[in-house]
Structures are given as C-alpha cells and as structure tokens.
Design a protein around this nucleic acid. Structure first.
Lengths: 218, 218
DNA sequence: TATCTGTTGCGTACGTCGTACGTTATAGGT
DNA sequence: ACCTATAACGTACGACGTACGCAACAGATA
C-alpha cells in the first residue's frame, strides 16, 4: 500500500468509520446506510470495516453514542429546572440535526457517552433535592419527553417530501372531513399554522418539570 | 387446487395475512418476520401474499393498524381525565401485548383505525372544554407518553434475555460504579426493586393530565 | 540485517432477503 | 362452451451482511 508516500490515504479507524457513517446517515437516512457504500466513501474495502466494528448493529450503536456525545450535560451551579431545560434543548437540537438518531436511540443499547449523559441527568435531579421516587419517575418522564417528542416531530416533518404542504394537507383533510373526523382535521389544520416546534418542546417540558417540583413538595 | 373438497385450505385474505403476521411478530419479533416464512405459515406461496398487500412496508403499516384497532377509545360520558386514563391504560396494555408494535408505531403512517383513535382523543380533550392550545399540546403530550413510555419500558424489559436479572445487574453495576456513575448505578438498583410499571405509567400520565387541567384554567 | 508475529486491509463467495415477471389455475358472467 | 378478470405460484435477480482465507505491513527479537 502507498503509505506515507504520494497517496496519503488516511488509516481506517473506528472513529473515522463512525463519523463517516453518521455523516452519511444524516444525508441519506439510516436505511440507505450500506456497508459497501460506506467503505467506498472511506476509500476502503468493504471487509476492512470489520476490523474496527464487530458488525453493522454494533456500528449503529457506536453511531448513536457519537451523537450522544454531542449533547450538553446539565450545568452544575444552576437552578435544576434551568439546567434541565438547557440540556434538554441541546439534546433536542442534536437529535433534530441527526434525524435518524431518535428512532435508533430507542432500540439500541446505550454506549459510554449516553451512560454518562444518563448519570448527569440523574445527578441533577438528585442534587436538586427531589424525593427519590420523584427522581426515579422524573428521569423517565424527562428522557421520554426528549426523544418521544422529537420522534413525533420528525415523523410529522417527514410527511411532506418535496410536496407542497398545503396540497398535501388539503387532500388529507378532504379525506378526514368526509370520514367524519373533524377533530383530527382541525388538529392537522393547527399543525399547518405552527412552525415553531421548539416552543412546544419547552412548553411541554416545563409542564413536566413543574409537575415534578410540585409533586416533590407535596 | 383442492377448493372445498377434502382439503379446506382457507382462501388468502388481507385480513388473514395481517392477523397471521401480527401473531408471528408477537412470538418471534418483527425482525424475524420474513415473507417466505409468513407464506409458509399460511400454507401459501410467497408471492401470493402480494395479491393482498402492496409490499412488506405496507403490510407492516397494516399490522400496526390492526393493533390500533384493539385499543379502547375514551368513553363519552365520563370526566375527561378518567376517560383518558382508561383509554391510555388500554393502549398501554395493547402495546405491551404486541411488543414490536410501539417501535413501529413511531415510524409508520397511521391507518384508518389509528386515525379514528387520534380523532377520539382530540374529541375528548376538546369536549372537556380545554383551551385550544392546551388541546393541541395536550394531544401531543398524551400520545407521546403512551408510546414513549412503553418503548422505554419494553427496551428495559428486553435487556435480561434469559439471564438472571440479578447477575446482569450486578455485572452492569460493577462497571458503572468503577466508572464513577453512582447515580446511574442507583437508578439501576431502583429498577430492580420496581416491578409494577403500570403504576409508573399512570403516575406520569396523571402528572401530564393534571398539568393540562391546571394550565387550561390559568 | 534476517526472521517471526500479530494486526490491518481486501476479494471472493455464500446465504438470506424482498420482489419483478411470466405462467397457470380458477371462478363468474355470457 | 367460451371469455375474462383475478388469485396463486415458481423462478430468478439484485441487494445486502458477513465468513473466510490470503496478502501486506509494522514492530519486536536476535
């Protein structure tokens, strides 16, 4: 091989593979992620990848962990709700920027970065002085909100694929009205007038955080 | 073919295919669901299935809709929170009984049964007299809770595959303690002592419902 | 320098999957 | 008795993950 001669040709590394895989999935989606194509993108043979990842599933676990590493942990000194809001907003932004990641998040084992992130959230809730059961339930509620909300939001955003949203909604709505689903039709109409999903994300997060605070004092 | 003679051999039907596919996925998981195997189970040729379903993806959409049809809608006369609690409990039970369904729920387009279910929830919130923004956000919060919580719960339950939970937790915990993640370690320990996930499901649901009620009155 | 050893890269090949396509069988209308 | 639409089926193809065996190389030992 032309090592450090005319052709530099970066050495294959687990990190380089994961980064490239994340970038590829960001553009083409995780379904289009194929080992042959990924290797080609890296200028390597397909099977060379398997020197650094055990198999495709394990590689995707690694990709999710790379994404986990981009999330800001809650800050130490702040009031617990502000700290959680900031960290949740960061997680939300990260998951939105890697649209495939939220769905994978729910089905893959956590890697080291994600474990650290989990610990940081639990630490924040614990040191806020919340009652232990509230920490326990609250952790589930918060993480569920972050990824659950994002999945729903991205699922909705996926619907208009290069189609005029108005046309799509109109056709969709026609079917709903004639099928006697007026409330759903209204909801779809509401969606059309609501472009700021970040707002809804924090509105619902606050509902949860305030509920936890209140419940812990009770 | 031996039609109505000695060999009865049920006619192939979209409904029969979907029911069999749901049953198969319930037992073996959705990843093991393969067209050839499914056809064999139905006593049919593989390609015969394609006379009744467009392709595998569309078939899975249909499977999710079959599952959607099993969920009880919120009852009409009851106080809105009781009605929602009952319906959410039904949805939770259905999704737990078809363990593959929650993950598919988030990535497939809704079919007719699910659209009707969506409409029923929106109707309940609207007729409860909640403010329109609260209906809008509340719908998202409630549906997110139902499927998000269930996904997390099932993901957790999946971990001990025929392994003694204690052993697994012990090994896992060892790694966490030595990695300086005491809060996560404590959380895992808490999980071990908590077998009633249904309780947590409704505790968190109540937190959301009460938050919506309060927010709508404000 | 010469040899040995472990690691990384790679090409080939196999088994599994979804499904396109062309053909056959059957049922219902005339 | 014929015609036509639909369901059933077998074969075959391309895409995919990856097992396997070999080649190229780096560093250690002498």
């Amino acid at each position: 091989m032309a090592r450090n001669k005319n052709e530099p040709k970066l050495a294959l590394t687990r990190e380089r593979i994961l980064d490239e895989a994340v970038a590829f999935a960001d553009v083409h989606g995780v379904d289009a992620l194929v080992m042959r194509k990924l290797a080609e993108q890296l200028g390597a043979g397909t099977m060379s990848l398997y020197n650094h990842v055990a198999n495709k599933d394990e590689m995707i676990e690694g990709m999710v962990d790379v994404v986990s590493g981009e999330i800001d942990h809650p800050a130490d000194g702040d009031e617990w709700r502000s700290a959680m809001r900031a960290s949740a907003a960061s997680a939300h932004a990260v998951l939105v920027s890697h649209k495939w990641a939220a769905a994978e998040w729910t089905r893959r084992r956590p890697g080291p970065n994600r474990l650290r992130y989990m610990d940081a959230i639990l630490r924040t809730l614990t040191e806020a002085g919340l009652r232990p059961e509230v920490v326990y339930h609250g952790y589930h509620a918060i993480t569920m909100h972050i990824v659950g909300f994002t999945i729903q939001e991205l699922g909705y955003l996926d619907m208009p694929i290069g189609v005029d949203l108005e046309d799509l909604a109109a056709g969709f709505l026609g079917g709903l009205e004639t099928s006697n689903m007026p409330h759903l039709a209204q909801h779809v109409r509401d969606h059309a007038g609501d472009d700021d999903h970040g707002d809804e994300f924090s509105w619902l997060l606050d509902l949860i955080l305030d509920g936890l605070e209140r419940s812990s004092r009770a």
